[in-house]
Design a protein around this nucleic acid. Sequence first.
DNA 1: TTCCAGATCTTA
DNA 2: AAGATCTGGAAC
Length: 202
Amino acid sequence: MTSSPQPVILDTGFFERDPLLCAAELIGMDLVHGECRGRIIETEAYREIGDPACHLFTRPSAREFVRKHPAGTAYVYLNYGVHWLVNVLCHDLSTETSGFVLFRALEAIAGIDIMIQRRGTEEQRKLCSGPGRLTAALDIGRRHHGLSLTSDPDFCLQVPGGQESYRIVSDRRIGISAAKDHLWRFLAGDHPGVSVPAGRAR
DNA sequence: TTCCAGATCTTA
DNA sequence: AAGATCTGGAAC
């Protein structure tokens, strides 16, 4: 009887909370697509209220999206005309406000050969460390926009079977021009695979 | 370390 | 018409 516990898919309730809380607690969870699995080591939270960097601040299409979809839905968009970025939608029931968690870096856990093939590099550090890189490695794109991340075992977020724990660090977000001072990026402390180490964000 | 192209979407 | 939650390669 040495069976390890089965991975559990995060349910809708997990995402019916403050995006900051979800972003922090998603560190150490797994993002799964098909055969590929990555341990989440870096996230960013974006809030509807008080956050000019959030798509909900400037984009009517994003506001329509959150009206029409439940918590736990994938929000995927093309950045700079080149890279797909994947987020998960949060509806904070306690405040009746919404937001997103952006996935910024993973540690490749399974399906690594496929990721290497898709990324065209064997370098562990280049496989999934960056929001555009991880979507390329896991083949996540336009067709995932609006799909649930809480129901399909082939596209979901899971609590991994093991019990590895991570020291969670918060830091400034990357690549934004507004609301730079919010410490709304979350990282697995000291993990070599993060896109930008803690304390290095401009 | 810094610069720059790449290619598409959304909004104005 | 303008700017954008990025990446890889080249130049220095």
